[in-house]
């Protein structure tokens, strides 16, 4: 049982035991999310949410998680502010660092931007999504959802379907599911597959029915509006016809397969509305619920490490 990371920048640097530790703690929070007992976990700590890219759901989830743990939460809408005035990311980071935040939750449209920012600040940084790189808390909440539904997060057959090329959610999930020794199947039209996908250690399919055969978990990805027309796929309706999840395609998966989606959904584009609402198959609402628990656990663990580091530094000074 250990969690050594200073920041949560992605799934890639995490050790499988760190993932398990985080999921175990998140499980406890999920069982009892509102308890007043949690109120002092982050008491006296400041959490700043910096979103350089639009987000309602993820930002709300982080805010709620922080508040439930007793942190002072501040939201900064970064698109509207300094970047418009020409300030660089580094300068913004240094300015914020001078306010001594303990936890920084960052989303940025460019891959690697959160890593860059983390090099310049003293607090713990949580990546809430950077470009097409990673979205670690999403993968962790997906893992927790799967673990609670299936009883385990190893030796499962998981299909990830849709716009894999542009999805940070897909990357983080591929990392996490791979580290936990699952069988991963990627299903997408070739134009929405990342380059070098053959070396990912995943099975690659361009046909939904073939790819979904006997899987335990079906993860759907959101198709961004700007990718729908002509550029990557011919049209929305052709995409739905070939890659949209409907009852006929889902019938190829195991009878007890669960259906996931990171939201927000495009009903009738990547997923049929009735499947999304089918309480026997869809765990989409559970994912949202687990999101708060996972973020509570992540911030709790990072805060513990932060306190330990500060304590060590303080002792160093006194000695």
């Amino acid at each position: 049982m250990s969690f050594r990371a200073q920041h949560l920048l992605g799934i890639e640097p995490l050790h499988p035991t760190e993932i398990t530790t985080l999921l175990d703690l998140a499980d406890q929070y999920a069982n009892d999310p509102n308890s007043v007992r949690h109120r002092d976990v982050l008491a006296g700590m400041t959490q700043i949410n910096m979103f350089f890219e639009n987000s309602t759901r993820t930002q709300a989830s982080f805010e709620l998680a922080g508040k439930r743990l007793g942190a002072d939460v501040m939201n900064m809408a970064m698109q509207a502010s300094s970047l418009k005035k020409g300030e660089t990311l580094i300068d913004t980071a240094l300015t914020l660092n001078a306010m001594h935040p303990d936890l920084l939750v960052v989303r940025h449209p460019h891959s690697g931007a959160v890593d860059l920012l983390a090099q310049k600040v003293n607090g713990a940084v949580l990546n809430a999504g950077d470009g097409k790189h990673e979205h670690p808390t999403q993968a962790l909440l997906d893992a927790l959802t799967i673990r609670r539904a299936k009883g385990r997060i190893h030796r499962l057959s998981v299909a990830i379907c849709g716009d894999v090329a542009h999805s940070r959610v897909a990357r983080s999930n591929i990392m996490l599911l791979g580290k936990m020794e699952n069988r991963i199947r990627l299903i997408a039209p070739p134009t929405l597959m990342p380059s070098g996908v053959a070396e990912f250690g995943c099975e690659v399919f361009h046909d939904m029915e073939e790819g979904l055969k006997d899987v335990d978990v079906v993860m759907m990805l959101r198709l961004q509006k700007e990718r729908m027309d002509g550029g990557f796929i011919p049209s929305e309706r052709e995409y739905y016809h070939r890659y949209g999840l409907d009852a006929a395609k889902l019938a190829h998966a195991k009878p007890d397969a669960i259906v996931m989606h990171p939201g927000p959904m495009n009903r009738g584009v990547e997923i049929d509305g009735t499947i999304a609402d089918d309480i026997n198959r869809s765990v989409i609402q559970t994912q949202v619920e687990m999101g708060v628990a996972v973020r509570m656990a992540a911030m709790d663990l990072l805060a513990r490490n932060l306190r330990a580091r500060r304590g060590a530094a303080l002792e160093g000074v006194m000695v």
Binding site: G112, G131, A165, P194, S195, G196, V197, E199, F200
Partner: peptide, 11 residues
């Protein structure tokens, strides 16, 4: 350059 590294880094 496109390939596994580009995809992993999301660049």
């Amino acid at each position: 350059t496109s390939g596994k590294f580009a995809s992993l880094r999301g660049l």
